[in-house]
Structures are given as C-alpha cells and as structure tokens.
Design a protein around this nucleic acid. Sequence first.
DNA 1: TATCTTCACTAAACCGGTTTGCTAAACCGG
DNA 2: CCGGTTTAGCAAACCGGTTTAGTGAAGATA
Lengths: 359, 359
Amino acid sequence: MEQRTIRPRIADVAREAGVSKTAVSFAFNSPDRLAPETAVRIRDVAEQLGYTPHPVARMLTQRQTLTIGVLTPQALSVIFSNPFFGAFSEGVAGAAEESGYGLHFISPLHGSLASAMSRATVDGVVAIGLSDDHPEVEQIRRAGVPIVLVDSTALPEHGSVEIDDVGGARAAAEHLIGLGHRDVLVIGVEPPAPSLAMDPDGVTSRRLRGYREAFAAVGVEIPDERVVVGPASIEGGIAALNGAWEDGVRPTAVLVMSDAMAIGAMRALRDLRLTIPGDVSVVGFDDIDLAPHVDPPLTTVHQPIRRKGAEAVRLLLAVVQRRDQANPEHLRLETRLIVRGSTGPVPGQRHEEVAGVHH
Amino acid sequence: MEQRTIRPRIADVAREAGVSKTAVSFAFNSPDRLAPETAVRIRDVAEQLGYTPHPVARMLTQRQTLTIGVLTPQALSVIFSNPFFGAFSEGVAGAAEESGYGLHFISPLHGSLASAMSRATVDGVVAIGLSDDHPEVEQIRRAGVPIVLVDSTALPEHGSVEIDDVGGARAAAEHLIGLGHRDVLVIGVEPPAPSLAMDPDGVTSRRLRGYREAFAAVGVEIPDERVVVGPASIEGGIAALNGAWEDGVRPTAVLVMSDAMAIGAMRALRDLRLTIPGDVSVVGFDDIDLAPHVDPPLTTVHQPIRRKGAEAVRLLLAVVQRRDQANPEHLRLETRLIVRGSTGPVPGQRHEEVAGVHH
DNA sequence: TATCTTCACTAAACCGGTTTGCTAAACCGG
DNA sequence: CCGGTTTAGCAAACCGGTTTAGTGAAGATA
C-alpha cells in the first residue's frame, strides 16, 4: 500500500457512479449517446475521484499517439549545442502544436538508435541528418511508421525536405573568389559516428561539392588536406581551426559549413591574434538568429531553418493523417548568401583587383 | 486492405514458429526460460517477419514508459527561440539519455497545458518556469506523476531546482552602480500568459528584487515605469527597448533578465545610433554560449544552465525509480557576474569617480 | 393490441503485449 | 522402478481503456 496516490481507473468511476465502464467511456468520448443528466453525473464522479483516462491505454485502443518523433543520429546533448537545431525544433514544434501533436525526441540510447526507435510511441517521424547508411530507416519502414527525411539522402518512397546545399556553398565560395581568395580552409560537419564513412550524398559532401565547383571554375583545386571536420558547435569550430593551424595550414579564408562552428573558428583566429576579415575571412552556413550579432557580423549562407522544420511536419502529417502514402513530396528550399562583416578582400591584395565586388 | 505494410503482432510470430505467445514473449524478455534452440528459432522467425514488440502495448503492461516529459508553460515554438532553452534541454537530454530515458516535450496544445499533459505518456515531468498559479501542477499530482519544478515557485512536496536569482541580479546591479550608473531601465521576461498577474515569487520578480535591493542600498529607487517586459527572445528585446525609448526613457544602463533579450536590446540601441558601452551599458542574464561572441561581448550573470537541466532529471529519476517520494530535494545553484565588454562607466563621468572598478 | 423504433445503457470482445499458475515430460537418486 | 525435482512450454488472466453487438423498456405506428 506504499503506492503513491493510487490512480483511479475507469472501473472505479463506473462502480462509484453505478454504471458500466462503457457508460463512463461514453461520458467522455460521445456524451450524446447518454442521457444528459447521466453524462453529467458520471463526469462529476470522475472529477471528484480525480479520474483521467490513462493515456497509454487510450493510445492502444485508438491506435494513434498524437505524437510525432524527431529522430537525430547523435545524442540530443550534442545536437542541442548547435543553435541551428533550436531553430529547426522551433519550426517543427510550431507546426506540430498547430495540429495538436506533441513532440518526442528520439536519439541513440546507449548508442543504439534502433532500440531508441523501437520503444518510441509516435505516429510518424521527422528524421534530420540521417545518412542512408543508417539501417534505422529500413527498420522504421518495417515498423510501418511514416517518415520524412530532412537533410538526408532522399529516398523516393519517403517525403523529404532539403535545401540547395550545392548552390549555397557555391555562392559562398564565389563570394570569396570575387574577393581574391584562392587559398581556403574548409571546415565541415563530421558524420554522426566517427567510424562511419562520409556519406557521398550527405549534406557535408554536397556543400563540399559546391565549394569545389566554384573554385574549380577559376582553376583552383581544394585538396583533401584543406578539409577538416568536427562536431557542429562553437567548441567544434575552435578545435577544427586550431587543429588545421597546428598542421601548418595558413589560408586567407575559411569556408565553414555551420554558423556555430564559424563562430568558434572566428574565436580561435582571434585568439591567434588574427583580425577578421583583415587577416582571414570567414563564411558560415545556416544564418542562425545570432549571426548578425556576433563580432564581426557573420557572412553566411542563409537557409530557411524554421520553415524546413515546419514543412517536414506538414509532409509527415499529410501521410499520417490521410494515410496517403502514394506520392510523397520532395521539397528543396532555396539558400542565399548574406554578406556581412566577416569577409573582405585578400590581405595585401591591390585594391583594383577586387574592385566591383567590394561592399 | 489498403493498410500500409501490416505490422506483425506477437500472435503472428507465435503461429509461424509453432509456439505460444508466451514463448515469443519469453524469447525476447527472458530467454533463459526457454530451450536455447527454441529461443533462437523464435527470434529468427520474428526477425524474418519484421516483428518488433508494439511499444504502446509494452508500456501498458510494464507500467512504465521510460520517457520523461519537459513541461513548458508557453508554446515550444516560442520557448525554443531562446538559446537558454537549448542549453537547458542539452542538460536534460544528457542526463535522460544516460539513464536510458527518452524525452517528450509538453506544451500547451490549443492553449491548454492540462489537456496536453493528460495525453502525455511519461514517467515523470520536469517543469520549467511554471508559476504556481498554474493549476496544472495540481492536476499532475493527482495523476500521480512525479514532478520536479525548475525556475518556478518551489513547493515543498516536489523536488525543485532553482538558482540564486536575487543574488545574481544584485551583483549585476552593483556592478552598474560601481560604474556610476543611477539611471537604469529594467527589461524583464513576461509571464507565460499576458493575462496572468506577475507571480510574486517567480523568476522575474526575484531578479527585479535583486536589482532593486542593490539600488536601494545607494538610495536609488527603480520605479515601475522603468520596468518593461517582453518575450525572452532577440525580437522581444528589440521591441522592449524600443517601446521604452518611445516612452521617453533615457537610461545610462539597461538591466536585462535574459541574454537573448539583451542582445536584442543592444541591436535596438545601436540602431538608435548609440554606442555600447560608450552611451549605454547593458547587462544580461544567463550567460548563454554566444554571450562572449556577440558585439560587444556581453556582460552578464552566469548561471549553470546545463547543470540545471541535468540536476532536475537526476532529482526526478530519484523519485521515479526508487518510488521514494519522502524527502524531495531542493537545489539552489549559484550565479556569478561575468564582466565583459558591454558595460562601462557612465558617459561624461569624471574618471576618478569610478576608479577601481574599471577593467 | 401487436409490431416497429428509438432510447439508454450494458456485456463482452478487443487493442497487443506480459505474467502467473499449471502441466507434462525428462531427469535423477535411491 | 518409483517418487521428487527440473525443465520447457502453454492457457488464461491482466494492463486500462474503446467499440461492437445487443437488450429491455418506453414510445410510436398500424
């Protein structure tokens, strides 16, 4: 009897009110099937007993949870350290709440995304940054749970939302090229598990391709040694830049695939007594809310982060609610370069060489 | 038969393997009660059928969900726009994942926290920023769900985690006083529902008390007209400062109860062609990751945000797992002022008057 | 007056698992 | 060869609701 405040069950209400369980259920779900005064009386008894239908039991019979899952390939504690994810969640949450759905975050428990997924009670899943070598996608499909992939390798049978990574990256690189830079360092986002090979269709690869395309157009190659990766956080950016610096890399500009890392990289550069953009230019990616407010204001590739989350939920609910899995939508949102203060002409370069691209 | 890939049930596996449901259940949960080869065979059949135990059914019988809820009094879409919440979630998520728990975010659905709560399937709840006039706390207790209150009015029967709001605020104000400021504007965080009266024991009130105590000590009163509130976001800070400015308020310093709002206030000040800290000093509260990186680096009151989240989960799980509701813990974490570049002496003040506090 | 509806409510089946109590066969020592 | 213990597996009850198929009484219709 040490049980903490025993939760009344539907049978308790039924007994107390002198009716059947069915009547109690009706009183809550279809009061019109009961005499008005009976319904009121049952609800009074329920109220007085402090009865609330057990949500799990309800889920079981109604075969829906009114919850959507957000699947991340990395621990939430690392994911949340990237402000990008906060904004994305904002979009997801807004759309979910609007439709009356709750949010459940699913991340690898004890290293296993599969086991975390199999215990999650959701009607559908928005997966972000899941590379296709993750076997979880297959597992989810087999469990019959609708899924929408965001920033992942798109699969034809599932809805997907992505952005123009290649175009955005190319614009960032072209901006630097216009400023005279030929000697760059690329800082990318590392794949979820360090052991995992880089997904050739993943976000990191796509952005890298954009960078390389732009530089190739002016006959400059970005060798692999000029590409480093790290976790998408401020600390990750600091570590990545310092690591490259210690390896003797001395670029005039840094192309970073995440604003959080870019801010870290700027910190590291400043700690090396370099000025931005005087000595080194930095371009980020994402355009998080704080990008205009850091010092110097960050030049970056804008992507509609909140919208990305909201659209993903919209696509997902279309499948969940209408059971219409026929033609999953595939969305590609636009990116655009926002030039702020963290980029400038190559140091020592004569001014006229970069005329016309200067702001 | 339009059903999407029908999910196999335990009975299907049992039939296919020629055993009882019980045996299948054993094969997964207590294989030692089965002959080894039988267990293997059953698991093979399950694997081949793509069977996974239905998580909701499992929750129902095991009477636990392995999920903890994070309760917010405002829509997630607004909560997530404050970087503070991202860091807090980081702490919560880290501790939860470590113990094998998933995370479910609970926010008012269609305006009702109560209905959102009653459909959430969680073993316990971490509530943040819930003022005690929220009747939900009572509802949750009646549902028998353990709860830990964070940044709320502490109730003796539930665990709680808070910080030294008064002390932190006092330190911030004293810092300004030391720099010669006597004429300040306070920007606070508005209560969840605009209609709600300000909770006299809430975070906003506590911090305000700290500010006022410090100024009272030097004989200066902060009148109510010098206190404005808004949502805790960059935009909220911009709007709050502009609003005050339009009302003719011309302080030499601004005390802001959230870093996000402080960053917004700095933006608004700069747009008014004022320099920081030359014309106006700004002090924030929280010390979010980006505080050192904004322009100018933000002087702010540090609080251990991640630890706050982690400790809340720890307290909660102590109750959830050990069913030991006897002596809920009440934690108060320390705050400390971090002086960076957004504060300086009162403009026009002779230098020696502030000597000794200058950095 | 006999039959047909409608009304208000209920008993039982069901959702998809887990757990308890039991049985039949195999094993084991004396 | 016999009683006692283990072992391997099953049937049924249970978790806490919802839903289906009915039931008896009152009211309406012929």
